[in-house]
Amino acid sequence: MACYLHVSTSMRVILTFYKNFSWLVLAISLLGCWLIWLYGSWQYMIVVFWTKVLTNTLLGLFIHIFSPSQFYFFKNLGYSKTRLYTYTFIFDMVIWFIMSWLTIRMLT
């Protein structure tokens, strides 16, 4: 029960942070799915993977430079910058992977 509550709280914190820029990272994931659908090859996932790594890094830098005060909020919740970025990146990659996998399944 305690573990469930911890995961649930962590998810809420990550989703709150993720919501801030989800439109951009989800648009890139959708674009990746569209490429797979259009050309019928899973190999586009490699290109999209590196695009996502790059855009997530740039987003992190942008927030770090132009909106650093929001990290006090998350730090008060027990999330350092590194922990917040890492968890959010993993969350985004999992969503992208599921979307890509579903697209490939629909093709086959």
């Binding site: 801030n20 006090y72 909020f73 730090k75 008060n76 919740l77 027990g78 350092s80």
Partner: peptide
């Protein structure tokens, strides 16, 4: 990283609640 243990809460001089977060949240 003792912040994970939430021993100290801090109100900074700058704004604390990000603009995209509702007060209820």
């Amino acid at each position: 990283n003792y912040d994970q243990k939430r021993i100290i809460a801090f109100l900074p001089q700058d704004k604390l609640i990000p603009s995209y977060v509702s007060l209820r949240t």
